[in-house]
Structures are given as C-alpha cells and as structure tokens.
Nucleic acid binder design. Structure first.
Length: 838
DNA sequence: TAAGGGACTATTTTT
DNA sequence: TAGTCCCTTA
C-alpha cells in the first residue's frame, strides 16, 4: 500500500514564478537537439514547416512514424482550431502528445508557450511522461501542462491582488466548503434538515460550473433554495471566502475568468504567451472551462481539442456535451478530424458497443472499426441474484487464471459502488486477489485531514476552518461552548480565530480550566511555528502529531481501523519529505488529490464505470445490467432522455474498455440497501447487436440450472427443473413456440412501477427477461425472450409465494409482471414466474 | 462534555 | 444492510 505513496509526487513550488514574470524568457533548449532550430514561431520556422510538412526529414520526425493518416493529420494540423474526435481506443493520447512533440520539434514554440490542459492530475502526469519520452528534458520546461485547476491556481497566484485575494490564499476542499456553508445556514436560521449544506454546496458548484457569479444566477434558480434565499447565500458565501482569503475549486476557474476579463493587459500577456493550446477530454468541459479556454484561445487561435462525445459521462457534474457538439461554430474555420480506427478491442466487442451507442441521438457520429480479429463474442449471462452473479464471475475469473490470465488484466466495472461489496465478499472467500479502485481517497480520510489541519494552522494562522477542525481533536475539553466564545470574540474584534483565542486567554472571560487548555494550545502553535523555520517540515509534522496528542489518540483507540490510521499518518509524514517546505506541500495537497500508488501486485480490479474511463483491460466484467441499476433509475428520473443517453454512453465506455473479452451480467434479484428488489434486465442488453453477442448460462450457477438447489440457501425452486434448463440451448420447438406465442403483444409498461415510467416505456419486446424461462437464448441466430411473455396465470387477489419476499397477495397484473403486496417485504413488482401459487 | 441510541438515507467524482 | 448525523442522557 505504500510503495509509491499516494502523495509522493512533488510538483514545482507553487510560488516559483509568482514574483518575476517569466514571460518571454525561453526555457533553455536541450543540448542534444539534432536539427538546427529556428526561432520559435519565426518566419524561418514556419517556412520550413510549410516546405516540408512533417516529412521524414523534419526534425525528430521519427515520432511520426507509425501514426495512421488521420492521426498524422491531427498531429500536423498545428495552426488554427482543430477538433479531434477520437473514439475509444483510437490513440487519442498518442495524438495529443505527439502533437506537442511535433510543435516543439519544429521549433514553433518554446515549451513554456504551450498550454496543455487535462482534467486529472493522473492524465497530466501521463502526458508529461509520454512527451518526455519523445522530446526529453524539454518537457520540464512546460509549466503550463496541468489540470484546469492547477493552471487556474497558477494564474491566480500571479495576479491574486487583481481579484481581491492575497497570493497566499488557501484552497478549500469540499469538506471545508460544507462546514462553511453550514455556518451560513445556521446564521440564517435555515433548517438544515430541509436544506442541507451539501445540497447548497452542489447548487453553488453547479452555478460556478456554468460560470455564474452570484449576480448572474437566474432569479428563479436563486430562489429555488431555501425559499428564495439561495442567491443571498451564494453571495454571502463568496464574501466569507474573500474574508478568509480562500477560494473553492469552482473559484479557481471563475476567478481566473474574471481576472482575464477585467484585465485586458493580463489577458494580452497570456495571449502572447500561449502559442498553442491543447485540451484533453474536451467532452468533459463545463461552461466555465469553456469560457476560460475561449478567452485564452482568442490570442493565437491555435487550439486543439481532443475528445469523444460518446464518452461524455460527467454531465451530472456540469460537463456540457454541447461544447464538443458546437465546436465548429465556436471556433470558426475549425478542422474536424475523426479517429475511427480502433487499436484496442476485437471486432465483436467493437460491434456490440458501436451498435449500442447508435441508439443515442445528438451525437457527432463516428464509426469505429478495427482490422483485428473479431475474437470472442460479448457474452450476456443472467443470474438469479447478485450473489450468484458474483459467484459466476468469481468462477470465470478462476478459469481465466488457470489459463494464465493476469488478474491485473481483469476488471469488474460496476455502475454504483454498492455493487462492489458482493464481489469483495466473494473474492475474500475464494482467496482471489482484488483491489478496489476509487474508494475513499487518502486525503479524505479523517486522520489525514486532521493532521493537515494542524499543519495548515501552523502555516497560515488565519486559517479559521482548519483551526476549528482541530481545536478539540483530540478531545481536550474545548467544546462547543468554548468555541462559541472564541467565535464571538473573533467576530467582534474582526480577528482570525487563533488571534481571538490568544486574546481570550489573556482575559478573564473563559472558565479557568478552558483558559488553561486554550493557552497551552495557542502556545503550542506558536512554538511549532517557530520550529518551522529551523527544522525539516516532515520532522515538524511528527512533532506536532506527537505533542498535540493526536497520535496518542489513535494509539489508545481500540477500534479495528486505528492501526490503519496510524499507518496513514506515517505515510503522510513520509510523503512530505520530497517537498521543499510546508507551504509547498500544502499547496500540492490541496490540488493533487488523486491517490494513486498502491500498485500492489496481481489483482482483479474492481471499480465504477466512471473511474474506468481511459483504462483498458483484456477482460472486462460488466455486472448489474438491470433496469434501475443500469440505467440508473435516478438518472432517468432526474434527467429524462439526457439521463438515459448518458447512461448509455457509460455502457459504451464500459464495453470499450475490453481488449479481448467483455462479459455482461444481470441478476434477477438484488439486495439494495438491505431490501431485496427483483429486477428486469437492462434495455441496454437489447441494444447490443445480436451478431456480436452470445447469451450464456450462468456457470457458477448452482442457483440456476445446476440442479443443486438449496445449496446456497434459496431452497428448492421450480427454476431448477429440467424443463427450464434441460439441454444446452433453448432451441427446442416447445420453447420457441412459447416465445413466439408472446410476440406482437404489448402491455402497458407504465403505471408507477419502480422501473418504469421515466418517459421511456419499457414495453418493447426484450430479448432478455427476468423470467426463469426467458433468459434469452440463441434461437436460429436470434436472441429472443420477452419480459412481456404470455399473459400471467395469476390474477388480482391471488396468494403467492416468492423465494425472497415470502408470501403476498397479487395487486395488479400487467402481462407477466405482477405487483404483489408481500406480507413482510411490502409492495414489489415481480415477474410472474418468480412466484408460485400459495 | 462525551458516549450511546435512534432516525435517516442511501449514484456516478475531479479538483 | 450500514454508515452518518443528531439528539438525548449520564
């Protein structure tokens, strides 16, 4: 877990360029450059490039070898706006990095004149590495390669005073943000139950994502929160931030935009500076990011955005697919280059994914193709319940393992993290190595945040939020009452909390005991601050954790995870070493929040579909393809068609992660938040092209079809009967007749059911169904089975028995779907073949 | 002030 | 089911 610590990635010091403007001071060219190098952007350079566009004799031309014609075009179209529509697995990153190498190598710009933006630190790091591999040391001279946010910080630190900040401003994370908002809500006497701080934080974030300042918030929206007080709260919040000399993540962009808009000279500087702008994952940009980019791109117009509208899966946090759809009108004269040659997946995988995504409207349209083999078909497997699903996947993985398949090349991609547990449980039993990717981040852990809060107070005594966090951690008798007093004094005198505390200690206002404790605390902070000057900061951190009693607190804690927390604290201290000083470390922490590291040997990867974007694996398992889970019900309810389309893109992302094998699963029953839900197979299953899909039987499935009923505790069931499972296929005449009998019928799919009525009828015939019999089978090359099979044998009022829900009474009948009022489990929608007459 | 019980609520997540 | 947060009680 610790080999490469999550935080062990020091960056340049944040303030390295804050003082002198390093504009127009070119980074030294590497000594080993072979070709004569014209002055960047000089006429000679342009002429040379025009005369010999990327030809083999162009400087460093070797890196162009091996690009396909489209990729090459994207690399060489350096001038003017370019949109590269790069489908999954078409070499997007390669194009981006090669393009930068190309620009450098032609001498069109110094490294410091290229702005290259990504979304995550990980992506930035990777890009840097890959560029480095091509151009060597030059990459070190690229200060403007980074995330939107880190570049925003860089700009703001240079010009902080222009937007009413001091250069040492702190960056609040979500946690701080929420605590601050809580205070505001309390001050306004707003019921936090009804209007939770988290919701307000989301609302404000949403506004910031759209580039809206408090004054710009549409009146109606501003009024929607807390009976008309949303906008005021936003205004107050911004005022509080300014008072604290702090910004939140949204501000990093919003304030940068303001800076550029209100200061034409600053903007002009950046225009001169950024000769080339490159943007990764353009489909994920939100409005604020778009505005920011557009401002900067007005200088050179050399902006190249790379993205894939089909992989836009962050609409829910403000990403605007529209940005990519509108690129050509936003940047007139834009070249659009499509990368459609897929180098990752086999033909069947690609075919299935491509067919699925055609169900979306509003896309730019790409057709991926590969020249590789068609490989194995995508499999679809039904399981009785989520446990069996996990069991089946576990067994398949063991099979693969026996065939020397590396576990690290296997991924299980789930829609939501509650699905992970089932797999973890199962893999623990099997002794199968796995790792969960995503999870709680290192920096989010309470102990890390506490430790950081101590350090923050030391580094900047005005950091009230940090002080509040740790005044009484560990418990030292400075509870609410004491804190309130400090607060009041601070407000009255206009002081930061630490100062207010210092003054109170010198007065008679506090109870003696409190006063003593507080005096010690303030004294300790003073002492630590002095030590900061003449002691390595990581040693200081250790001292602070010791002397504050924080380490001791966890040592005494006898809960199961206390040891882990102490380990994390050690890791934190270790990770500080490479940094020059405490301030530098804290800056890094506030921006670089991805906790990579933990390579940890050969293990199956379990993660959400979202976090799988950009990754690839030989074998990908996609469990949980059921209506309600995937597509997620809430996405449907809240976003309607747009929500469905985003879910579909997510499915597309999932399938296209697979190089050789994609294996989709659905379960007919799933325990969600402790309650058993029965579910209908996902509509996405029907949207996979039949020629690329094979429906298989659940192999782990003793629950189904293995004839070993009862072994896993469901007791005997009619699904075990040979009639249902006999033979290896369902191509028996009787089965076909049964299926055909149901065709052409429709049933009303609406009606308040849990998985319906979201504006999409689900009464289309489905090739899959949750019925025992209707786990789709291949019949003469066609997958059939319908969720709306023959009319139900049950009628209203019948008493029925269900394996999971127990006894109940049929309330309504729609086709083969029943709404049953169960005696214990409440009202459920179930498919009739899951119940039997009682 | 601090611990323990009851109510409540459950996507996706980066910075 | 399980984790969190708030409120009550000692």
């Amino acid at each position: 877990m610790t080999a490469s610590g999550p935080l062990a990635d020091p960056r340049k010091q944040p303030h390295d360029s804050a003082g002198g403007d390093d504009f127009d001071i070119p980074f030294d060219l590497p000594a080993d450059t072979s070709a004569p190098r014209p002055r960047p952007g000089g006429i000679a350079a342009r002429a040379a490039a025009l005369a010999n566009p990327g030809g083999p004799s162009s400087p460093g031309g070797a890196y162009l070898d091996g690009l396909n014609p489209e990729q090459r075009a994207a690399v060489e179209a350096t001038e003017g706006p370019v949109l590269v529509l790069a489908g999954a697995g078409t070499g997007k990153t390669r194009v981006l990095t090669t393009r930068i190498a190309h620009i450098l190598s032609l001498g069109r710009a110094w490294p410091s004149q290229i702005l290259a933006v990504t979304f995550t630190n990980k992506a930035a790091r990777e890009m840097k590495e890959r560029i480095g591999a091509m151009v060597g040391e030059q990459v070190e001279g690229m200060p403007w390669l980074g995330t939107f946010h880190s570049i925003g910080v860089r700009m703001l630190r240079r010009h902080a005073e222009l937007v009413g900040l001091k250069s040492g401003f702190t960056i609040l994370d979500t946690d701080d943000q929420i605590r601050l908002l809580k205070q505001l809500l309390q001050a306004e006497n707003i019921d936090e139950k009804r209007w939770p701080a988290r919701l307000l934080a989301n609302t404000i974030d949403g506004w910031k994502n759209r580039g809206l300042s408090p004054q710009q918030v549409p009146a109606g929206e501003g009024a929607a929160f807390a009976n008309g007080r949303g906008q005021k709260l936003y205004t107050d919040y911004q005022a509080r931030l300014k008072a604290l000399n702090a910004v939140d993540f949204g501000d990093l962009l919003l304030e940068s935009i303001r800076l550029l808009r209100e200061n034409p000279d600053v903007l002009a500087d950046y225009h001169r500076r950024f000769r080339y702008i490159l943007v990764d994952e353009y489909q994920d940009t939100n409005v604020a990011q778009y505005l920011w980019l557009r401002l900067l791109a007005q200088g050179s117009h050399n902006v190249c955005c790379v993205g894939d509208d089909d992989q836009s899966i962050y609409g829910w946090r403000g990403a605007e697919v529209d940005n990519i759809l509108r690129f050509e009108s936003d940047f007139p004269g834009a070249k659009v280059i499509r990368l459609e040659r897929n180098y990752r997946s086999t033909g069947h995988i690609l075919g299935a994914a491509a067919h699925l995504i055609t169900h979306n409207e509003g896309r730019l349209g790409k057709t991926l193709f590969s020249e590789g083999e068609s490989g194995e078909k995508v499999t679809v497997t039904g399981a009785w319940d989520s446990q069996e699903e996990a069991r089946a996947i576990g067994e398949e993985i063991e099979q693969l393992q026996h065939h020397s398949h590396a576990l690290s090349q296997i991924a299980i991609l789930v829609r939501a993290s509650f699905q992970m547990r089932e797999f973890e449980d199962r893999f623990v039993t099997l002794g199968l190595n796995y790792r969960v990717i995503g999870g709680p981040r290192f920096y989010e852990r309470a102990e890390i945040r506490d430790a950081l809060a101590y350090l923050r107070v030391i580094a900047s005594p005005t950091d009230d939020l940090a002080f509040e966090r740790i005044v009484n951690v560990p418990k030292r008798g400075l509870g609410d009452a004491a804190l309130r007093q400090i607060h009041e004094h601070a407000r009255a005198m206009g002081l930061p909390l630490v100062e207010a505390a210092r003054q109170l200690v010198g007065s008679e206002a506090l109870k003696p005991k409190v006063r003593l404790t507080l005096r010690d605390l303030v004294g300790a902070f003073d002492r630590w601050r002095e030590q900061m000057a003449n002691m390595p900061h990581h040693e200081l951190a250790e001292i602070v954790l010791d002397e504050s009693g924080y380490t001791e607190m966890w040592q005494k804690d006898r809960s199961a995870d206390a040891a882990g927390r102490l380990e994390n604290l050690k890791e934190l201290v270790r990770s500080m070493e490479p940094f020059e000083n405490l301030v530098g470390f804290l800056e890094h922490i506030s921006l670089v929040m991805d906790a990579e590291g933990a390579g940890g040997g050969d293990a199956v990867n379990i993660m959400t579909l979202h976090s799988a974007k950009g990754l690839e694996f030989d074998t990908v398992f996609l469990p949980g393809w059921e209506e309600g889970v995937f597509p997620n019900q809430r996405a449907l309810d809240e976003q309607g068609r747009a929500g469905l389309e985003e879910e579909r893109r997510l499915a597309y992302v999932g399938i296209t992660r697979a190089r050789r094998r994609a294996k989709v699963f659905f379960a007919s029953n799933r325990r969600i938040h402790g309650l058993w839900q029965s579910s209908v197979p996902s509509r996405f299953l029907d949207e996979l092209s039949e020629k690329d899909v094979e429906v298989t039987e659940s192999r782990g499935g003793s629950g189904w079809g293995g004839g070993q009923s009862g072994r896993y505790g469901y007791g005997p069931s009619r699904f075990d009967e040979a009639q249902t499972f006999g033979g290896s296929s369902y191509s028996t005449p009787g089965w076909q007749r049964a299926q055909n009998a149901g065709r052409g019928e429709s049933h009303s799919g609406g009606g308040g059911g849990r998985f319906s009525d979201s504006g999409f009828s689900d009464n289309r015939p489905s090739r899959y169904a949750a019925t025992s019999a209707a786990r789709g089978r291949v019949i003469e090359g066609e997958l059939i089975a319908r969720s709306s099979g023959s009319p139900s044998a049950f009628k209203r009022g019948d008493r029925v028995f269900h394996q999971k829900f127990g006894y109940g009474e049929v309330m309504t009948v729609e086709g083969n779907k029943l709404t049953v009022q169960f005696d214990k489990a409440g009202e459920k929608k179930v498919v009739d073949s899951f119940v039997q007459a009682a």
